[in-house]
Design a protein around this nucleic acid. Structure first.
Lengths: 336, 336
DNA sequence: ATGTTCGTTGTTAACGTGTGCAGCTGTATG
DNA sequence: CATACAGCTGCACACGTTAACAACGAACAT
């Protein structure tokens, strides 16, 4: 069958202990024998039996990458960037196991023996029980993308506020002053952050925030459509609208088009998230990219040092977002 | 630390062997003791140490899902559907490990000890060396999505020919008779299959295949643009174009628009693959969906029976494709 | 009464690896 | 010259699980 350290030991006329040490580059072993054994092992195409290693070292070499769900369609880009980002970091030191949290009826197969660490790519508060479970079991954990309130967990999230600030500042730089906002679900942290970024940009550049330019949405296409429809009834319509995500921007564009108005000719629209479709809609949407891949990379790196050092500061880290300029904003008089 | 079968054995006043057998529902054990032990184990929240199980049973409980690459952007939907499809089948009996083949400089960590089975979601002939490597090592294997020539491997692929047949038949049903085709890369199996589907549909409905209506492309946007541009120079322009994938359809639409012509007003365009962007372009693209999730599900199921039964017929299975009707085809005189 | 078989349980070894401890050799130190 | 010590190697056990085999009592057949 496959070659073991005992086979190598026999061929090298040493004990399997020596082989084990040599292959692990132990300082106890004489340099010459070490190299001799390493070469022998290489020539035999030896690969360690990871089950055996796992058993004695009490490490599974498994990392879990858990998504809120794999059943609703919105997360293909998410999944892709996350898997990619994490894989870049762990190379072949770990196995990356990808699952949806909602696949589990019971979590009891999730334990420290089976996972050296866990990454939760959280898209919803519904995975809080899972996060709590993992925390209880003291499995090294990072939570990505969604901000966790009670900060007893390593948390990496996009800097929504700064992203919102930038895109609104961009609108202002293009000469807009009548800038409306369509907000997301009220109880979401992201909604607050994005609204705050909008507010700060407006204030910084001394642009007035009109009360009738603030509309509430709930992050879906329909709510964007409805909110925009309301904005279009105003005597003085806004010349630009900051939608707190791309889906609402889609709805807003639809509402505008139905009034025989053009984007960006009559009204400029920007979104947030840079969803996969955003580059392909007409007009291509100017938006803010959430750096999922970078968050995943950083998160995985943090997790690895956590696993090795057994302890690390549990902090909330904001990863910079990126303004993506496409075709949905018009430069008007006064802009650069 | 965590509870083992020996702990349970002590509490139950039996040997650890008995516990092992009881938990594995062995017929050797008396029904009463079996239940007693199972209840005890449950109340202690016992979970087996999979490393130990793996070592003695020579099974890793790992399944590998390998993609040609995770670095080029085209496969987000692929990744998503594949991960989802496979996870649906394996439940929590296996760990699904997701990787890009091109992440590996050397395959030597891939072996039968580390993987009970491997699924290759192949998007390119470049992963043939990997497939050969896995086959050599006699690791249970299925290859999905791309047809393998020398059939010594379990192979599940979309029925491209039938899909092409259907979409072309649809064009004919909408009254089109001047139907052009923009083909893909010549050496690809998929190109041949799609062209053949086109040919069959035309023949079946006695529509003439004109020689000047056959253009060659290579599956990218530019080639679609170039091919369409050539078609537009013809005295008698086609009224519909079957592009062998969605990207070329995108290029074709661009070429048409630049001539001040409209899709589908002046020329109808259909694609193939149902890429993620296809629903969002203007006009939304009528195309053929490749059932990646279903292929993954079926493939995973085949793999599992392969792993269990140690042998299975190595066959090539075609999975049905699906016509997705959107807005890029016009019904003209003579159509239904 | 003795042997046979069945049903149930325990003893022991095995899977492949890592590691504490002992042991060996040679050299430096007193 | 004896002792200490450093450098290197091997023995034996451990990790948690499964399984071949032995063992035991009871029931049954001879």
């Amino acid at each position: 069958m496959s070659v073991t350290i005992k086979d190598i030991a026999k061929l090298a006329n040493v004990s399997h202990t020596t082989v084990s040490r040599a292959l692990n580059d132990s300082p106890l072993i004489n340099q010459e024998t070490k190299e001799r054994i390493q070469q022998l092992a290489a020539s035999l195409h030896y690969t360690p039996n990871y089950s055996a290693k796992s058993l004695v070292l009490d490490r599974s070499y498994n990392l879990g990458l858990f998504f809120s769900t794999l059943h609703t369609g919105t997360s293909a880009g998410f999944l892709y960037e996350a898997v990619k980002g994490v894989n870049e970091v762990i190379e072949d030191r770990y196995n990356l196991i990808v699952r949806g949290i909602d696949d589990y009826k019971s979590f009891h197969k999730i334990n420290r023996k089976s996972y050296d660490g866990i990454i939760v790519m959280s898209q919803s508060a519904t995975d809080q029980p899972f996060i709590d479970y993992v925390t209880e079991r003291e499995i090294p954990l990072v939570v990505l993308n969604r901000q966790i309130e009670h900060g007893q967990v390593m948390n990496l999230i996009p800097d929504d506020q700064r992203g919102a600030y930038r895109v609104v500042e961009y609108l202002i730089s293009q000469g807009h002053t009548n800038i409306a906002i369509i907000e997301g679900k009220e109880n979401f942290k992201s909604t607050q952050a994005r609204r705050e970024g909008y507010r700060q940009a407006m204030e910084k550049h001394q642009v007035i925030v009109r009360d009738e330019y603030r509309e509430r949405g709930n992050y879906d296409v329909e709510s964007g459509y409805a909110a925009m429809s309301r904005l279009l009834t105003l005597k003085q319509r806004p010349t630009a609208v900051f939608c707190c995500n791309d889906e609402m921007a889609l709805g807003a564009i639809k509402a505008i088009n139905e009034k025989q108005l053009a984007v960006p000719g009559d009204i400029s629209v920007v979104g947030f998230d840079d969803q996969l479709f955003s580059a392909f809609v007409t007009p291509a949407l100017t938006t803010v990219r959430r750096p999922i891949e970078e968050i995943s990379r950083e998160g995985a790196a943090k997790l690895l040092t956590f696993i090795e050092n057994k302890h690390i500061e549990k902090e909330t880290i904001f990863i910079h977002t990126e303004l993506v300029i496409r075709d949905s904003v018009k430069t008007i008089a006064g802009g650069v």
